[in-house]
Design a protein around this nucleic acid. Sequence first.
DNA 1: GAAAAGATTACCT
DNA 2: GGTAATCTTTTCC
Length: 163
Amino acid sequence: MLGARLILRVRQGWRVARIVETEAYVAKDPASHAYRGRTERNRAMFAGPGTVYVYRIHQVHCVNLTTRPGQAVLLRAAEPLTPALGNTQGPGRLCRAFDLTRADDGVSAVTGPRLRIAPGPRPDETVVRTPRIGVTRGRTRRLRFLLSGNRWVSRGRSRRGRS
DNA sequence: GAAAAGATTACCT
DNA sequence: GGTAATCTTTTCC
């Protein structure tokens, strides 16, 4: 998913960004919102692949794409490719730049009219893995993926971690 | 029904 | 580097 395009259709045209940082939330993962099974909030994580799962934390939103039932990828940062796009560094800012809220929860990023994910060219940067940011459980696993050295990566700009 | 926790961010020192 | 803001969902009694 790193290097893929996130595309939002707006009245004036498009907003496009290149995904540069993600985190995986997998099966039997204590940090995952789906860890204790399906609930009202996480139902989008149990819908088909490519379903958008948006949740709110504190005063911001975060966006995920469902991969398999109960599993999803959090989009943490992107590189703006259209000038009108605001700051997309960090999951909350990314959602704000794309105007994503709970209203978008459950839509498809594959077939939906508003938000799409599309393949991009293979990134030049090296993919590195680190532990996930902000989680209190499941800290030992390296399930954060980022494009090494990219200026839009949310923190650390980590060149550490192994590819 | 109440309380706590949280996949964050902005602003402080 | 630390912490408050702020609110929804989940968890516990």
